[in-house]
C-alpha cells in the first residue's frame, strides 16, 4: 500500500535537497546536449535542464542498456556480468514513469530478468511536472499523471515544489532531509490544481483511443498502411527512442583470443531479420508488414497494463520522415469510414 503524502520543497532549499540525493546514488538528470536532451550523470544542479521536453533515449536505458553486457565467457563458462550501482533518476516525466511500469510487466514477469530487477531495485525515481509541447499526447492515454512508479514527484510551484511521496524509499528520503521540507499550504494546493488544469488545456495533440484496438484490427488491409510504407524509411529510430519498445538482439563478441561477451542491444521490428526464421521464411517480409506490426504492438490494449504507448511523442520527434503516430492512426480510422 502506497501512502501518498504531500510536502513542500521551497526554492531556497532546492539545491540542498538535490545535493543530498548524492548519498542515495549517482544522480542522472536531463542535460541539454546540442539540440537534444539526454539523461546524464550530473554533479551539480546547474547542469540540469529542469524544463526539458523529452530526452532522446527514455530512462529505460538505465534498466535495459542500449548495449547490455549479460555474460562474460571465461574458460568456456559464462560468468555473470558485474553488479549495479545505485542511481537516482532525477526529473523523470510522468509518461516515462508509465513507460517503465510497462517494461516492468515484461521484465519482472516470471522468469524475472535479474539484470533489470537489480537495476530497478537499485534506483530512485524522482519525477517532475512538465508542460506539453507540440508532440505530447499523453493526456489522451491517461499517462499524463503518475500515481505510482516513483519515489518522489516534484510539482512546480511559484516558490518551490509540491512534493508527492510515492514509496517507502521516498518517505525515507523526506525523513532524512526533514529540514529542507515544509508542510504544504492551501495556497500551494490551489496552485497545484491550477497548474494541472492549465497543463491539461495545453495539449495540442490527442489520440482517439475509442475502440482503437478493434478499429485497427478491422483496418488490416487499410490503404493508409500502403501510403506510409512508401514514406517510412524503415530505419528503426522510432523503436530505439520508444520508452515501451523492448525488442532486443543478442550477439556474442570476442574480447580477446579466448574470451568473449554476450551482449544484447536494442533491436527494431523494422529490421529484416526480426521476423526471419531459419530456412529463410520471413513472417513480416515487407516494410508494410513491419510498419503495421509496430502500430499493432503499440496499440495493443493489455487489460492489466493499458496501451503499449505512453504518448511521449519521441517517435514523432525523431522520425526523419516526419511520420506522426496520432496522424497515422487517425488516417487509418478515417479510411475505415
Amino acid at each position: 500500500m502506497i501512502i501518498l503524502r504531500y510536502v513542500k520543497l521551497p526554492s531556497e532549499n532546492f539545491e540542498e535537497f538535490f545535493n543530498s540525493l548524492k548519498q542515495w546514488g549517482e544522480i542522472n538528470a536531463p542535460v541539454k546536449q546540442g539540440n537534444i536532451y539526454s539523461f546524464k550523470k550530473v554533479d551539480s544542479l546547474k547542469e540540469v535542464s529542469l524544463d526539458y521536453t523529452r530526452t532522446m533515449l527514455p530512462p529505460k536505458k538505465f534498466f535495459v542498456k542500449p548495449r547490455d553486457e549479460l555474460l562474460k565467457l571465461k574458460e568456456g563458462k559464462w560468468e555473470e556480468s558485474n553488479g549495479t550501482k545505485p542511481v537516482v533518476l532525477f526529473g523523470v516525466h510522468s509518461c516515462d514513469i508509465h513507460g517503465l511500469q510497462i517494461l516492468d510487466k515484461v521484465y519482472l514477469d516470471e522468469p524475472v530478468d535479474i539484470y533489470y530487477k537489480k537495476r530497478r531495485e537499485n534506483s530512485i525515481i524522482i519525477g517532475i511536472s512538465c508542460m506539453p509541447d507540440e508532440y505530447c499526447f499523453c493526456k489522451s492515454l491517461g499517462t499524463d499523471f503518475a500515481m505510482t512508479g516513483f519515489d518522489l514527484f516534484l510539482h512546480e510551484l511559484p516558490d518551490g515544489y509540491l512534493v508527492r511521496v510515492g514509496s517507502v524509499k521516498g518517505h525515507e528520503i523526506v525523513w532524512a532531509n526533514e529540514g529542507v521540507f515544509e508542510p504544504i499550504s492551501e495556497e500551494d494546493l490551489k496552485y497545484f490544481r491550477e497548474f494541472e488544469e492549465k497543463r491539461a488545456n495545453s495539449f495540442k495533440r490527442s489520440l482517439n483511443k475509442e475502440g482503437l484496438a478493434d478499429m485497427l484490427d478491422l483496418a488490416f488491409e487499410s490503404p493508409v498502411w500502403k501510403k506510409y510504407e512508401k514514406i517510412c524509411l524503415g530505419c528503426g529510430n522510432c523503436n530505439m527512442v520508444c520508452p515501451t519498445c523492448r525488442c532486443y538482439e543478442v550477439c556474442d563478441l570476442w574480447v580477446n583470443a579466448y574470451e568473449g561477451v554476450r551482449v544484447r542491444r536494442y533491436d527494431s521490428c523494422f529490421m529484416e531479420s526480426h521476423g526471419l526464421v531459419a530456412g529463410g521464411h520471413n513472417f513480416r517480409p515487407t516494410r508494410l508488414d513491419r510498419f503495421r506490426h509496430r502500430y499493432y504492438c503499440k496499440s495493443y490494449f493489455d487489460p492489466s497494463a493499458g496501451f503499449n504507448c505512453v504518448g511521449c511523442g519521441r517517435c514523432d520527434e525523431f522520425c526523419p520522415a516526419k511520420i506522426e503516430h496520432v496522424k497515422v492512426l487517425d488516417e487509418v480510422r478515417e479510411a475505415l469510414k
Binding site: L212, A213, D214, L216, D217, F220, C245, R246, C247, Y248, E249, V250, R264, D267, C269, H274, G275, F283, Y295, Y296, C297, S299, Y300, F301
Partner: peptide, 9 residues
C-alpha cells in the same frame, strides 16, 4: 526479447 510477438491490436 520480442522477436516472437505476433498478432494485432
Amino acid at each position: 526479447c520480442g522477436h516472437c510477438i505476433v498478432g494485432t491490436s
